[in-house]
Design a binder for these strands. Structure first.
Lengths: 330, 330
DNA sequence: GGCATACTGGAAATCGCTTTCCGGGAGGTC
DNA sequence: GACCTCCCGGAAAGCGATTTCCAGTATGCC
């Protein structure tokens, strides 16, 4: 393993000079020595030891992103957006997946803290469990106290910079659009009750329906994924319009209806949320609420990095996109 | 920032003892002191500085994964598989995305080398450019020379442990299956000529068709993504069966045909490759060649970590999955 | 020519932690 | 009771960089 000392020796200069040449510094080094050092480094195949640099400099160039599940296109898009920003700032990215286990999320924050990463980005819904949230908040506070920066995509519950999608408003707008098409009997594939993103979308939808003076939707809970949508779709009763709280569940619902010979949108209209790119070629194309996921990821990281003095909460509106999977009631 | 020294002082013990208690060691520490140290650490909110640990121990607990594009479900699945293995070994993961730029890939390897990561996993097709490949190989060799471990998912061109999907054989088997349904006029949406995964799949397919004594397929090149498939599908001429070299392209092709009123599979059969989970609910459901992507990612990381003496190349067979998007010719 | 000023190069302290080595006390054996 | 082990605690030497000083030389200005 080649160290800076080896290079310095080979070049016949001091450690300080070698460091200044190779790893950047405000100080200049004469052309002759500079060349000698560079040649030596090249010959020896020197690579700076970043752990040592981090220790010496007291600051690293790594950030952390914590997501629930990378294979979920929602998180992939968020992470991708953030990673582009990171790349622009010449930062490396450590990605952790919690697989929806809040304990893992806490553990990951602790680990990233130990790594002294510059910033931590929490992408993914909070859960409605005050004890867990409090512990996570405490862990984040400890991290921030030692100079770390934190941002979060989701609900503003942690007391950190947050990019908050307008889950309630988006779902409400969707409900009004669908009601505008003449639907009155709704069902909601609501996902897990404790997952706040799911709960907010469900609540926004239900509230809007009620405010329109329509009968309360039937709410079916279940997992937040494709199979959850598939299963929940078995229990939508006589609803003419079904709202799945995310696109992936909506796709599961479409599959369930297809199998049972129920035509979408002729027999039942289906809508989702997120406007996942990978799912745009679904047939019938999915009515949904578009969220600018990549931008949100990028923006969240910018917030964390910018290190503003005061906390920022950005509200990101969703845009209702009507497509083939819904149909006006005659 | 709380250091181990602070903890030791507060507990009234030496640095060595504190280290042994908090950060693991083969040596035992008496119960009384152990408790004192733990209490002090807790009170002070101590977090080990991993950069310092890495430096002192001479080895970190981080691995690196380099992918082309996280939002591509192919890479997401690969990465997810690897990350599960990593989590099992209590390793952290740094993810880099190259966005298909080979230079970025090389740069990333250099960076991960500098980070002294334990292993690097290269997920993603090689390109047919000997100069680039040679430079990447050199970079990897340097990394390995200093103790790093490398594995790769894709083509065995780098001289490192490799998990190689049977792209040629899979495509050939698919060709035979499709020919078995009576098709004789094929087209291939071949992706970029220089991308080896694309090229191998295309070649496997074309060769198998020729070996069957059928006319050579029309080969249409283009980007390796959804839009590439969409565009290339405009030029499939009178083919009755179209093979897109990956599922994402196949979905693009389905969209193109749909828009033009060409029915799949009635007017043209379409097949893809990979069997991407997110795309399984596509209508019509996609005939494809299934690759166990998560396992491949996991396996590749295991190879890298296992540190076997001799190099391993594992061939992963694909399984032809016939679904609705193809139809026998009458 | 003399003096202040800027640069450049090097020695050495430092970052926070691990680990070897050493010393002292407890326990076991003959 | 002497001797040998075994264990546990601490002092100190690294790990591989950065960076602060300090010194020496070249430069600018009068």
């Amino acid at each position: 393993m080649v160290t800076l000392e080896d290079v310095a020796k080979q070049a016949g200069v001091s450690l300080a000079t070698a460091s200044r040449v190779l790893n950047g510094s405000t100080r200049q080094v004469g052309a002759a020595l500079r060349a000698r050092v560079e040649r030596a480094a090249d010959e020896l195949g020197y690579r700076a030891n970043i752990a040592a640099q981090t220790l010496a400099r007291g600051a690293g160039n790594v950030i952390g992103i914590v997501v629930h599940d990378l294979t979920d296109p929602y998180f992939a898009a968020l992470a991708d957006g953030a990673m582009r920003t990171a790349a622009g700032e010449r930062l490396l990215v450590m990605v952790g997946t919690t697989h929806r286990d809040p304990e893992q999320e806490i553990a990951y924050v602790a680990t990233l803290h130990a790594q002294r990463v510059r910033a931590v980005l929490l992408a993914g819904s909070r859960v409605a469990d005050e004890r867990v949230t409090a512990r996570l908040a405490a862990e984040l506070a400890a991290y921030q106290a030692s100079g770390g920066r934190v941002a979060c995509v989701g609900q503003d519950l942690l007391g950190v910079d947050t990019v908050a999608p307008a889950n309630r408003d988006g779902a409400a707008a969707l409900a009004r659009s669908l009601a505008g098409l003449g639907h009155t009997r709704f069902a909601v594939l609501a996902g897990p009750p404790h997952l706040m993103t799911a709960a907010d979308r469900c609540a926004g939808f239900v509230t809007a329906v009620r405010d329109l003076g329509l009968p309360a939707p039937r709410v079916v809970h279940g997992p937040f994924d494709r199979d959850g949508g598939y299963t929940a779709a078995q229990e939508t009763g006589d609803a003419t319009c079904v709202f799945a709280v995310n696109d992936v569940m909506a796709v599961g619902a479409l599959a369930a209806y297809r199998e049972r010979g129920i035509r979408v949108p002729d027999d039942v209209s289906v809508a989702g949320f997120d406007d996942i790119v990978t799912l745009r070629d679904q047939v019938p194309s999915l009515t949904t609420v578009r969220l600018p996921l990549k931008d949100m990821g990028a923006r969240a990281l910018e917030l964390a990095l910018s290190g503003g003095d005061s906390r920022v909460v950005e509200n990101v509106p969703g845009e209702v996109v009507l497509r083939e999977s819904v149909k006006p009631l005659p």
